[in-house]
Design a protein around this nucleic acid. Structure first.
Length: 482
DNA sequence: AGCCTTTGACCAGCG
DNA sequence: TCGCTGGTCAAAGGC
């Protein structure tokens, strides 16, 4: 079971941001998440109290209903109607363990007026309606290998873009309880994820670590009186302006409301870009510099171009993943000092992350590479992504999370990933007596057998081959991580 | 020999 | 149509 350490892992190394720049609100009671397990917390707190229901679209999630996609479409991001509040880990746990999963509603989400009254600046990260933090928590892409994540830095997150014009005006945000804060602190510490998009737009961007203060710092912050919960007087914690939850009730695209997964995904991706000009010499830059070449994100890249971008001192380098048929690209901008200031990923890998030894010159024809390529080099591999990247991603999680949220854009905090990995694994074994690889997180390790059956029934593709073939890679990578 | 980077040229989108 | 800009190509050279 997961034990969430409030300030575990990299959090302790943060450089706390300027507390004065933050605004705190209060809307519900403060809870001490403490050492409780995250799943338990999720259950107790009802999906963090954040909205799942995107308003006009009634979106209920069922994890096992025949024909519904919750189990095989990115863990609850399915546009299909669902039968309960969340379709991910919390609910699955609840289903299996008899936990009571509170139904979500949007009532506890502060209105736009609340935000505006506090003059919360923009931009900020907005999670589109219909996508709850729990979904993110459960995203198979979220929990990926982070052992060599090059972006685990404390650079200030800036969002250069915001939701596309498809969305309704932003109304956010959600006040975080301390408990929630703890969760997001861990998650967003190095939160990078990748979400598959529509067929013709394999485009992903980083959701990078947010620049968050420690929980202690938040606790010590003065809470404006207007931000205190009138009823409880409790102190809550809110990410401002770096993070908030959009509470829009619907999305309008081309005049039509939608809860389409890809759209939600696109919104997330479009909402998040990274920039760190203010902290170019900060921890992120330092880490990036320390990590050296872009290839040290675990993948093999070939530089195919370099451009001097207008308005920027530093040139932009263009890299392609060297893996055959892999369409993953990335743009890397460096500061004059050579520090990486921005990395933007486009597309996603259709293969497992190469093992460490391959990065340093192991021929691509190595057995391991062949193994990895089995799924990736299927003629229709990419096409399958195109047709249903969500399923592809999820299926790939059956064997190894690295091929889910593969790549740096899909990696996340080590502590979170590892804990969830272990937790889900433990859960799986305890409940079913089945073995699931510790590396199988998100997509499958938290799935019930029925869910896995559903997933396969729905024609998911396999990226990394079957689990048996993925396992050696997973193991080797785990060893590498050690 | 293979893979990489460098770098100028080329192309496409946009105003 | 033209110029600008970003992205990509591909030849050349290095390791």
């Amino acid at each position: 079971m997961v034990e969430m350490d409030n300030n575990s892992g990299m959090i302790g190394s943060w450089l706390p941001p300027n507390a004065s720049s933050r605004t705190l609100l209060s809307s519900s009671s403060t809870e001490d998440f403490g050492s409780r397990s995250l799943p338990a917390f999720l259950v107790e707190n009802g999906n963090l109290g954040l909205s799942w229901n995107p308003g006009n679209q009634k979106v209920n999630v069922s994890s096992k209903t025949e024909g519904e996609v919750g189990a095989n479409s990115f863990n609850g991001l399915s546009p299909q109607p669902k039968s309960s509040s969340i379709g991910g880990l919390a609910e699955r746990m609840a289903t299996r363990k008899g936990f009571n999963v509170p139904k979500l509603d949007t009532d506890n989400i502060p209105s736009t007026g609340t935000i505006s009254s506090l003059e919360i600046p923009s931009p900020y990260l907005t999670i589109p309606p219909g996508l709850s933090p729990t979904v993110l928590l459960e995203s198979p892409a979220l929990f990926s290998d982070i052992s060599d994540q090059p972006f685990l830095t404390t650079g200030k997150l800036e969002f250069l873009e915001y939701l596309s014009s498809n969305t309704m005006p932003v109304s956010c945000s959600t006040v975080f309880t301390k408990s929630e804060y703890n969760i997001f602190e861990d998650i967003f510490e190095a939160f990078t994820f990748k979400i598959p998009l529509e067929s013709d737009s394999h485009h992903s961007r980083l959701v990078r670590k947010l620049d968050l203060p420690s929980i202690e710092e938040y606790v010590q912050m003065e809470i404006p009186s207007e931000a205190r919960n009138v009823e409880t007087g409790s102190k809550n914690f809110q990410y401002q302006p770096e993070f908030c939850i959009q509470s829009d009730s619907s999305i309008t695209i081309d005049g039509k409301h939608t809860t389409d997964n890809a759209i939600l995904h696109q919104q997330i991706l479009d909402a998040v870009v990274v920039s760190d000009e203010q902290n170019g010499a900060g921890p992120r830059g330092e880490l990036s510099a320390a990590l050296g070449t872009p290839a040290e994100d675990g993948y093999n890249w070939r530089k195919y171009g370099q451009k001097q971008v207008k308005g920027s001192e530093c040139p932009r380098s263009y890299y392609k993943c060297t893996h055959p048929n892999c369409q993953m690209k990335k743009k890397v901008e460096r500061s004059p000092e050579g520090r990486i200031t921005e990395i933007i990923y486009k597309g996603f890998h259709n293969h497992l992350k190469p093992s460490l030894n391959r990065r340093v010159g192991v021929p691509s024809s190595s057995p391991l590479n062949d193994l990895e390529s089995d799924g990736a080099e299927q003629p229709d591999s990419q096409a399958s992504f195109d047709e249903n990247p969500i399923k592809g991603i999820l299926q790939s999680g059956n064997g190894c999370q690295d091929c889910l949220g593969d790549g740096p854009e899909a990696t996340s905090a080590a502590s979170v990933a590892a804990e969830f990995c272990d937790a889900s694994n433990t859960l799986q074994e305890n409940q079913d007596g089945n073995h699931s690889s510790p590396d199988s997180i998100g997509g499958s390790s938290t799935m019930s057998n029925d869910e896995e059956d559903d997933r396969e029934t729905h024609g998911s593709i396999s990226l990394g081959g079957d689990g048996d073939r993925d396992e050696p890679e997973s193991k080797s990578r785990k060893l590498d991580a050690c």
